[in-house]
Design a protein around this nucleic acid. Structure first.
Length: 359
DNA sequence: AAAGCGGGGGG
DNA sequence: CCCCCAGCTTT
């Protein structure tokens, strides 16, 4: 055993964290937790894990759920392809595997939404198979301990880290080793202001010796961000319904709902939205234009304005729209992006109280 | 190889 | 304001 692995296990014995998915070998629960925790902090993901586990006690229950319900349960967690793949994989396991979760590394890796990290995690945690996890924690811990200057976001660099991780893995207890290195990265060797002065690894940590801790790990790319401008039409009918649109195109928030939206190159005045053309000869009026709501995504910044429109009569026909008509009190049945919910919450807390009033 | 995909927390 | 988080998929 390397000195690294030996010290890591010593540290883990004293400092391990307790999590709801650590006390089980149930592959369904382990898989569920790992999908939820992709690119997601423990504190943010844990409530979602508990809710999914409660709502869907078995993978069969998840497979049988309607997709909108799954999306609704995932609402607010982000990276919604994870929820779609989760549902698809549950159906696959239920229908093609007789409800038995795959139990080899190869078959686990083949599941939708499961990549190298998640496959190693499930294989080791559920089946004690010897596969080393490489996640953000591992990149950081190994990058520092071995003072690796190779970037972690290149094919070459990933290969090198994966190789090193496999070398360090404790073959006879991969599950404990994998938990240990991630706990260590998450609580001791943290991204900013790591606790080097109290660290058991200090005397053998190369980056600590060389003073490069804050410079590890190395990343080569930086993401550029674009600006997008959404004009949301909150269209109310006389009988207290609004219209929603399901986002089906290959874009952000796929399969989530939103108000009918007009995207422009910038935020524009309502006159430039050609609402008269949209509603043809139907009578409507613009009751209010909201303030500007903004949301920062990983590589886009969304600027959104909500135009509250009142129809005189219920909408008859609008050319080529696939909007659905939803009673206001049923909005909580639908999964919305964060920016929509922020708007709705502001309506409820008073600033836009008139939106909810009878007409 | 590079780009796209959320949302929240912390410095 | 920027960075990072139990990454994966598509192009």
């Amino acid at each position: 055993m390397t000195i690294f692995t030996k010290n890591l296990l010593l540290w883990y014995k004293e400092n391990q964290r307790a999590h709801p998915w650590k006390e089980t070998k149930n592959p369904y629960h382990i898989w569920l937790s790992e999908i939820i925790l992709q690119q997601t902090r423990i504190e943010q993901g844990t409530p979602y894990f508990l809710r999914f586990k409660e709502k869907y006690p078995s993978i069969i229950d998840l497979a049988n759920a309607p997709e909108d319900e799954v999306m609704r349960l995932w609402e607010g967690l982000g990276y919604y392809s994870r929820a779609r793949n989760l549902h698809a994989t549950a159906k696959y396991v239920a229908l093609e595997c007789n409800g038995v979760f795959p139990n080899t590394h190869k078959n686990i890796l083949a599941l939708k939404g499961v990549g190298p990290y998640t496959a190693a995690a499930i294989a080791s945690f559920a089946y004690d198979l010897p596969h080393a996890v490489v996640d953000g924690n591992v990149y950081r811990v190994l990058g520092r301990y071995f003072n690796i200057s190779e970037p972690i976001d290149t094919t070459q660099g990933k290969k090198q880290f994966a190789q090193l991780a496999d070398q360090l893995l404790l073959q006879k207890d991969p599950a404990t080793y994998n938990q240990a290195i991630m706990d260590f990265g998450a609580t001791q060797c943290v991204p900013v202001n790591p606790a080097c002065e109290t660290c058991i690894m200090r005397s053998s940590c190369k980056a600590y010796q060389k003073g490069t801790v804050t410079m590890r790990p190395i990343k080569s790319k930086k993401t550029k961000q674009s600006q997008r401008f959404f004009h949301y039409l909150v269209i109310s009918t006389p009988d207290q319904k609004v219209y929603l649109n399901k986002r089906l195109k290959k874009d952000i928030w796929q399969n989530l709902y939103e108000f009918p939206m007009i995207e422009k190159e910038s935020l524009v005045a309502s006159e430039e939205l050609n609402l008269n053309t949209l509603f043809k000869d139907q009578a409507f009026w613009l009751r209010k234009v909201s303030s500007i709501f903004r949301q920062q995504l990983s590589h886009q910044k969304i600027h959104a304005q909500f135009l509250e429109i009142q129809l005189k009569d219920n909408l008859k026909q609008i050319e080529n729209h696939e909007w659905i008509e939803v009673p206001r009190n049923q909005l909580d049945k639908y999964a919305f992006p964060r920016i929509i919910n922020t708007y709705l919450e502001q309506c409820e807390t008073g600033q836009n109280r008139q939106l909810l009033m009878d007409f």
